[in-house]
Design a protein around this nucleic acid. Structure first.
Lengths: 173, 173
DNA sequence: GTTTAAAATGTGAGTACTTACTTATTTAGT
DNA sequence: ACTAAATAAGTAAGTACTCACATTTTAAAC
């Protein structure tokens, strides 16, 4: 991975996240990265390839964030970590997460599959704590987590900290 | 409002909702509507104007959906109607709602302001029922509602009916 | 009720510009 | 010297948008 290759990835991530995939031209990416436009196609084949490269390099972030929760053995901790997840995403990774959310709507990249392990871990946790409907509880909590994440990334007026504390209280954690 | 004008609005709504605003060209809209491309600009000035026309004509739907909840006096009914809202949106209006959600990400049209009256109605309802933190309860419920709506429109595997019943039970309704 | 002129609606062929992508050529690392 | 990295200058197709012209609708005058 050369220096310019990384510059392209960085620039594309920022622009795709802030303006959207279709609204960002390869010309714009090249200029923002301080690179000739042709280089994008030399390294990433086409615009779609550039996007895939970004997504692949970001996969680690996604997995490491989820892994910490899934590895947890204490059921209460699984739930607590899920609720506080939004607060643990680093500001330097905002662009990546924003892109992830944006692509769910702009292209039809669901990201539903990637949530599955987390959903199962949550369902197990709720089951261990003798909740009546563990699967539904898991789904509901994920709905909340996604909603809160979306709100934060969209710069909503919502008070994240307060909301997280409120939820922890609701789940008696 | 002429016949062709409505055809343009219909076509644009469907295409914007399904492919996205930036990904849909005016040429595509014109062909899909069976109309000359120039007519779009005669009637709606530019592409942005076309979008605004769609949004304005859809405003009624948004208001009528929220109004029914806000007018409600029984606090328990306010909460119940909010929870079941997702199930009440007609399939013929899917495109409109999908566009609404998509635009939140593609452009930065928040739609946060339009939620404010509903949020206040919910906060009042929770307050009447002596909940400890009515504002947070309201915000949380809206987070769920939006998340559930998004899931349905994205064609998620989630069981909407079941989830709604589950939530009603949680809120003792 | 017909005529007629003006206004509104609609078209098709353009425009200048941008798009994703290519290719011939040059630069730099080993 | 050979290979990979990088560039500059293309290209064809697509973009939003315009404009001169044709058609229909409206409405007032006779």
């Amino acid at each position: 991975m050369t220096e310019k290759q990384e510059k392209i990835l960085q620039a594309a991530l920022e622009l795709f996240a802030k303006e959207g995939f279709h609204a960002t031209s390869t010309n714009k990416v090249a200029k923002f990265a301080g690179v000739s436009e042709g280089l994008i196609f030399r390294h990433f084949c086409n615009k779609e390839g550039l996007l895939q490269a970004i997504l692949n390099s970001g996969e680690r972030r996604l997995k490491s964030l989820f892994a910490e929760i899934i590895m947890e053995t204490d059921p209460k901790e699984v739930i607590r970590k899920t609720i506080t997840m939004t607060d643990h995403i680093d500001e330097s990774e905002y662009d990546f997460w924003k892109l992830q959310f944006k692509l769910k709507w702009e292209l039809e990249i669901s990201g539903d599959k990637k949530m599955q392990p987390l959903k199962m871990a949550l369902a197990n946790a709720f089951s261990s704590l003798n909740y009546e409907s563990p699967e539904l509880e898991a789904e509901l909590l994920l709905l909340f987590t996604e909603g809160l994440g979306a709100a934060v990334l969209k710069g909503s007026s919502i008070n994240t900290e307060e909301m997280i504390q409120f939820l922890l209280k609701k789940y008696k954690l």
